[in-house]
Amino acid sequence: MKPPLFDYASPETIADAVSALSSNPGAMVLAGGQSLVPAMNFRLASPSVLVDLQRIPGLDTISIDDGVIRVGAMVRHRDLELDDAVNAVHPLIREVMAHVAHVPIRNRGTVVGSLCHADAAAEMPLLLVLTDGAVKAVGPKGERIIAARDLFQFHMTTTRDADEIVTEAHFPVPGTGAGLAFDEFARRHGDYAIAAIGALIEKNGDGTVSRAALAACGIGDRPTRLAASEAALTGTRLDDADLEAAVRAARDEITAPDDMHATNAYRKHLTGALIKRVVAAAAARAK
């Protein structure tokens, strides 16, 4: 249970970090290390060079402007969770964070690291997908913005190139009046979700749903939007029949095979129950 051999680089600029990545095939980025170091201890990951981002100035900042919360690559989960300015404009972040592992892990693990690790059952990728967020990636060819819907490809696989560094995550601030909620089922608190649902509901003046966003994780090979369920809810008053329709519309999205944690049928059951619960909670918060 010790990491395999690797070379260690501790660059002080993004440019040096990118060049360390692009000149060393098999190099990997190290931020908080709360997913990568255990993977290395298990010998599941064996980087040629570890490029540690912690000495690069400016990566540990959180800013809110133009309706976007920008989270730097070295911002720890706990820092974002406890940031009162963030909580004032996007309270769902703190709620979701309570489900991310445990405080000692959140003290070290980074938000951007979690997004790049892209576990199909992880909460922060779900949140980015739910709110149409994005990440900023810097590589040898310059920087680009990758939308959440284009970022997550497969379990632990993103469209980030191997020589790119994600320097920021962008979480859009929800519109005033939007109601957001999240819930998950896990066997033990802090574990990855067996199934999790996030919802964003906006209502018209007459009480009908003007916009519904639903995202899920743990139920397939990546965090995903439940587009058919969103369509089933839009324009309705969220009566029982509408919620049932949304649950039925999600069934095809639940593709995770039976595993040691749950069967596919059980995940379908959980997803249905969570959709009803979370949509109701989000609707109650919508103004």
Binding site: Y8, L30, G33, Q34, V37, N107
Partner: peptide
Amino acid sequence: GRAGRSCLTLAVQ
């Protein structure tokens, strides 16, 4: 000043 796992932290970190 904050609790963390010493088994998930490299000495160089």
